[in-house]
Design a protein around this nucleic acid. Structure first.
Lengths: 142, 142
DNA sequence: TCCATTTTTGTAATCTTTACAAATTTGATT
DNA sequence: AATCAAATTTGTAAAGATTACAAAAATGGA
């Protein structure tokens, strides 16, 4: 993910979100952890730094971010939703073994994936793959 | 979805699934209802016809089907998983207003979407769109 | 400082899915 | 037809993720 040089606060304001301390922290976390974390992970990691943080706040904040188009929600994993602060066009790979989500750059292919429709007003495009990453494949092959 | 002329039982056997009464009923339901139903919907619709049916059986059966590649699992909707008995290459559209999932035929585009990777062993490809269907868009515009 | 509004927090409730053990069914064998 | 082991189904209870909601805290303007 390309480095967004620092200004989380500015970014939030540009997306119509009032920048509170919690909101800045969570968005900053997403920018510095392009690992598609879940609410649980974000909460566990930020909780020591922000002792008063509530899991509900993490839920509320991410919902707000998604509504304002400031982050993308990934529903690849049927167990939990994951979040992506990288708004660029890219696909994802979900490993059925370890559950990790990897980025896949599309390059020229990106154009072919987005479509227009007379029937639907399309606001989001999602492309993802499932299978096994190298580590998990090797384990399986044994 | 192209009509699969009748033989659910044969189809299950071909996919390595022992065809019990419940399994046949559920697969038949998926073939005759290409509406991407959830466990809840399948259970509610079949329950009157099969009074002893348990929701656990619906869960177990669909899991079995997915593992054997006999149906596809859709995780577009973060609230619930949906199931698709149509195994052909096609994309989906999820309406953020009414929650319905529509099929989108890809035509020639289908080729560009499937990829090969050195890093990952890819077994599934998913392409979907989100937005508003005509009905919901009109409601929103008012 | 005061007050209204917004944000955060914690708990309880809801909803989906899974675990598990008992009951039932199946199918082969006698 | 009766027996028995294996597979399948069932119902309940538990787990996990998410939301509802009301109280507490923080914010910002008058």
């Amino acid at each position: 993910m390309e480095i967004k040089t620092g200004n989380v606060e500015k970014f939030l304001v540009e997306h119509g979100i009032k920048p509170s301390f919690q909101r800045i922290s969570i968005m900053d976390y997403l920018w510095t952890h392009p690992t598609h974390p879940s609410v649980e992970t974000i909460y566990n990691d930020l909780s020591p730094l922000i002792p008063t943080l509530s899991k509900t706040t993490v839920y509320n904040t991410l919902k707000l971010f998604v509504e304002h188009g400031a982050v993308h929600m990934l529903t690849i994993d049927e167990k939990t939703t994951h979040f992506d602060g990288d708004l660029s066009d890219h696909a994802h790979f979900f490993c059925l073994g370890c559950g990790q989500i990897y980025d896949i750059e599309l390059g020229g292919k990106a154009k072919g994936v987005k479509i227009k429709s007379d029937l639907f007003s399309i606001t989001e495009t999602h492309l993802y793959y499932k299978g096994y990453c190298r580590n998990c494949k090797e384990k399986n092959d044994k």
